[in-house]
Amino acid sequence: MDYFAQQLINGLVLGSIYGLIAIGYTMVYGIVGMINFAHGDIFMIGGFIALISFLVLVSLGLTAIPLILLIVLLVSMAITALYGWTIERIAYRPLRHSFRLAPMLSAIGMSFVLTNFSQVSQGARVKPVPPIITGGYTLHEGSQGFAVQLSNIQIMVVLATIVVLALFTWLVSRTRLGRDMRACEQDQTMAALLGVDVDRTISMTFVIGAALAAVAGMMYLLYYGLVDFFMGFVAGIKAFTAAVLGGIGSLPGAMLGGLAIGLIETFWSAYFSVEYKDVAAFSILIVVLIFMPTGLLGRPEVEKV
């Protein structure tokens, strides 16, 4: 039972990170109907920028960890958001009304560009950071010497996710921008006729998605204590899987899918085998889609005849 509780905690933390990335996929999909294959790499870039800015701040003599973390968060969100914006402008906007596969391949190309850009600019080796946030709580002292641990960093990841999600939900449901986004999702032509600046709204979608990915990247850095240029691919596929599992286009679905994938991975590793955790996640995705072809919370596709 203790072991189970521990895995549950670990799974939820991992799932939060996946969920944050998955929202970016699902937002972009909802509004422009394309898979932004470069989104996993945006997450990676976010992690790198968090790392570098952290390093720079520390060497500048800042010592207050909360302040550093706040600045790092803001800097990485801002710069990563600009990456999202630029990519949309360069690689996707010219293909907006083109055939479905062209923007997708452009996105795959962009993913290669980002992966290799960071490999070239920051080197191929894994970048470790010493643990920044340490300590934690022992929730329950088990009988066989196994204790359920909840570390501060885990609390922080979950808290940050909740705060960011709350902000994000407010943004989508209560602000002008959110309304424009939902309008563009329904019908871009009609939205444009009603005075919504479609280009700007789509740009902002990429900006917000990238900023969320940057939060995920920073959490990943703090939680695992490392970044490397290739981490975007695996995390990206997992988050994309999460988005699809939850029902692509559905924002709560993305978070739910992220948590599901995180839990599946963690429990599979804990009870079966670490090697096959990804196989398990992908297999469950396939099984779910067989029975629910539009994911857990996706709108069922009504076939118009």
């Binding site: 596929i237 994309f240 692509i248 196989v279 992908f282 297999s283 396939i286 889609l289 067989i290 539009t294």
Partner: peptide
Amino acid sequence: FPVLRLRGDYLAIVTLAFGEIIRLVIIN
């Protein structure tokens, strides 16, 4: 078989997942 009912991007992720499953099984 599993992808018969799927469309578009659901199909894309399932085929991608299938490719990864095969590769991971080969590795492990």
